[in-house]
Simulated scan of single mutants.
Amino acid sequence: MLILIAGPYRSGTGDDPAKMAENLKALEAPSYALFKAGHVPMIGEWVALPVWHAAGGGKVGDDLYEEIFHPVAGRLLQLCEGVLRLPGSSKGADNDVRIATERGIPVWYRLEDVPGCGTLAA
């Protein structure tokens, strides 16, 4: 399955690039376990960041940022077959869960609950 990993990226960072990079690392942490279980992990920022940069994005939270970041997740959710919601406050991740739920896409809150990951998560 293509599984969107959703959790805090910008939330709680004050737009500090170092803190946002730490949050991206946390989002990426379960990606290998998902891959080992036969899934394809996806993170919205993996798509949104290069699109934003290519479009001339300059400041986190600017109009261009807002135009790209949340819509990317919505578009990805048209393709994803599941969402892994990581802990932490995030309006964007909460919105991803809302969209997934409305579309009947399963949402998991623990890696070990994702099909095939029960024996991989430790």
Rank of each mutant, 00 (worst) to 15 (best):
G104K: 08
A55R: 12
A33I: 12
V72I: 15
R85W: 01
R103K: 14
G88S: 04
F69I: 15
H39Y: 02
I5E: 03
P50L: 13
M1G: 09
T13N: 03
C117S: 02
G14D: 01
A18N: 09
K59M: 06
G12S: 03
G57K: 10
Q78T: 13
L79Q: 10
Y32E: 15
R103L: 07
M20P: 00
K59A: 11
H39G: 05
K91N: 07
E67S: 12
E102Q: 12
I43G: 00
G38H: 09
M1D: 02
P115K: 11
L24F: 09
P115A: 11
D63I: 10
V40C: 06
A100P: 01
L86Y: 04
G58I: 09
A121R: 07
A48T: 12
S11V: 02
V107N: 03
A18R: 14
L4I: 10
G14S: 04
G14C: 07
A100M: 04
K59N: 04
W46G: 05
Q78C: 07
W52Q: 11
I99C: 00
A100G: 03
A33H: 05
K59R: 13
I5T: 09
A18E: 13
I68A: 08
L77I: 08
W46T: 12
G12M: 02
V47S: 10
G14N: 06
V107L: 07
P106L: 11
F69C: 14
L79I: 11
G7D: 03
E81Q: 12
D96R: 04
P30S: 13
V97I: 05
L4Y: 08
A122F: 03
W46D: 11
R75P: 00
A6M: 04
R85K: 14
Q78S: 09
A73D: 14
T13G: 04
I43H: 04
Q78L: 11
L4S: 08
F35I: 07
V114R: 09
L49E: 14
D15N: 15
V40N: 06
P8M: 02
G74A: 06
L86D: 05
N23S: 05
V51R: 13
G82P: 00
H53I: 15
G7K: 08
A37W: 05
K59H: 06
P41C: 10
W46R: 13
A93L: 02
D113P: 00
P71W: 07
A21C: 02
L49N: 11
V107T: 05
P87L: 11
A73W: 03
I43E: 01
S31F: 01
A29H: 03
E45I: 13
L34E: 03
E45S: 15
E45R: 13
I5R: 10
G82V: 12
Y65K: 09
L84D: 01
H53Q: 14
L84K: 10
E22A: 14
P106F: 08
G104N: 02
W108I: 12
K59C: 00
A37H: 07
V51W: 09
P115W: 09
Y32T: 14
I3H: 01
